[in-house]
Simulated scan of single mutants.
Amino acid sequence: MKKLSLYIVLLLLLAATKVYSQKTDIKDNYTSQVQKEEGDLNHDKQNDKVMVEMDLKDETRPLRLQIFLSQPDKKLQMVVSSTKIIESQYPTDKKGEHNGNPIPDFFIEDGNLKMLTDINNRKSNYEFRLKQNNFELLKISRVLWDGKNKTFETEIDLIAKTKIEFEQELGSDEILNKRTTKIKVSSLPKIQDLSFSDLEQY
């Protein structure tokens, strides 16, 4: 009976070790650095860090966004880690084909984090602010070129709850067909809760 109990304990320990090992492997698979951006996000005059890394072991080539904020001891602490805000390079629904879009760019401007995407030739700029260790989506601006001499532009302000759409001729500052609509916003979306498809819905 004692031998049986010991055998069961050993099996449980081996299973736990295997699960831990798998979790560690998954965590460490994002080994290819795609982008590194530094700047002050929490207004303490110290550099914070934004990292985009790719998992080369996974055939879909998923990407991970991580944000590190400086602390009073001048060390960096991770506050955001997301694998869903950037689309995989070879999504499963594409059956081995590339998604056709460049990897988004992240940069820090005026203390806010900005994410630039180019999805199906529609260029978008997402602006996030840091509030209580959360990065909240504030504004979205988009530009779509018709391939000739006109652009279709959209500006969304989630605080003002407005969506402005207009057109412009290339080389002209004149705004055409401007339309303003009110949008419903119950709370500002947080970057760690958003997927790339969520962003495209706005």
Score class of each variant (00 low, 15 high):
Glu169Lys: 15
Ser172Thr: 07
Asp193Pro: 03
Asp173Gly: 08
Asn42His: 08
Ile164His: 06
Leu69Phe: 00
Gln33Val: 14
Ser32Asn: 13
Val143Ile: 15
Lys3Arg: 11
Ser70Gln: 11
Phe152His: 14
Pro104Gly: 05
Ala16Asp: 12
Lys123Leu: 09
Lys95Pro: 07
Met115Val: 01
Pro102Glu: 14
Ala15Asp: 15
Asn112Gly: 00
Leu194Ser: 00
Ser195His: 09
Lys178Ala: 06
Thr17Tyr: 15
Ile191Trp: 01
Gln201Trp: 14
Ser187Trp: 12
Val80Pro: 01
Lys3Ile: 13
Leu116Phe: 12
Ile67Tyr: 02
Asp28Ile: 14
Asp110Lys: 06
Met115Thr: 00
Val50Arg: 04
Lys163Leu: 06
Asn42Ile: 07
Lys161His: 07
Ser21Lys: 13
Asp157Asn: 08
Asn47His: 14
Gly96Trp: 01
Arg61Ile: 07
Leu56Ser: 13
Phe152Ile: 11
Leu113Thr: 02
Glu109Asn: 11
Asn47Arg: 13
Ile26Asn: 08
Val19Gln: 09
Asn177Ala: 02
Arg122Asn: 10
Asp93Leu: 13
Phe166Glu: 02
Val143Pro: 04
Thr24Gly: 15
Leu130Arg: 02
Lys94Trp: 00
Gly171Thr: 05
Gly39Leu: 00
Asn134Arg: 12
Lys36Val: 06
Thr60Trp: 06
Asn42Arg: 08
His43Gly: 04
Ser195Pro: 05
Asn101Ala: 01
Met51Asp: 05
Thr17Leu: 14
Thr60Ile: 12
Met78Asp: 08
Gln66Glu: 14
Gln22Asp: 07
Leu158Asp: 02
Glu38Val: 15
Gly100Thr: 02
Pro91Ile: 04
Asn177Tyr: 10
Arg122Trp: 10
Leu41Pro: 05
Lys95Tyr: 14
Asn149Glu: 10
Ile8Ser: 10
Asn29Thr: 06
Leu137Tyr: 01
Ile140Cys: 11
Asp157Glu: 05
Asp44Met: 05
Phe68Asp: 01
Leu176Ile: 12
Glu37Pro: 08
Glu200Gln: 09
Leu11Glu: 05
Ser197Leu: 06
Val52Gly: 02
Asn120Ile: 05
Gln77Gly: 09
Leu113Met: 03
Val19Gly: 08
Glu165Val: 13
Arg122Ala: 13
Gln35Lys: 12
Leu10Thr: 11
Phe135Asn: 01
Glu97Asp: 15
Leu199Ser: 03
Asp58Val: 03
Tyr126Arg: 04
Asp73Gln: 11
Lys94Leu: 07
Lys27Pro: 07
Gln201Phe: 09
Leu13Asp: 11
Ile86His: 02
Leu4Gly: 06
Lys94Glu: 05
Thr83Asn: 04
Thr24Lys: 13
Thr154Asp: 09
Ser141Phe: 02
Lys178Gln: 10
Ala15Gln: 15
Gly39Ile: 00
Gly96Glu: 00
Trp145Lys: 12
Ile8Cys: 07
Ile159Asp: 15
Thr24Asn: 13
Glu109Ile: 02
Leu6Asn: 14
Lys184Ala: 11
Leu170Gly: 13
Asn149Gly: 12
Ser141Val: 03
Leu158His: 01
Phe166Asn: 05
Asp44Gly: 01
Lys139Thr: 13
Leu113Ala: 01
Glu136Gly: 12
Lys27Trp: 10
Gln71Asn: 12
Leu4Trp: 11
Phe107Ser: 02
Gly96Val: 03
Ile159Trp: 13
Val143Lys: 11
Glu97Ala: 14
Asp146Ile: 03
Pro62Val: 02
Arg142Ile: 03
Met51Cys: 06
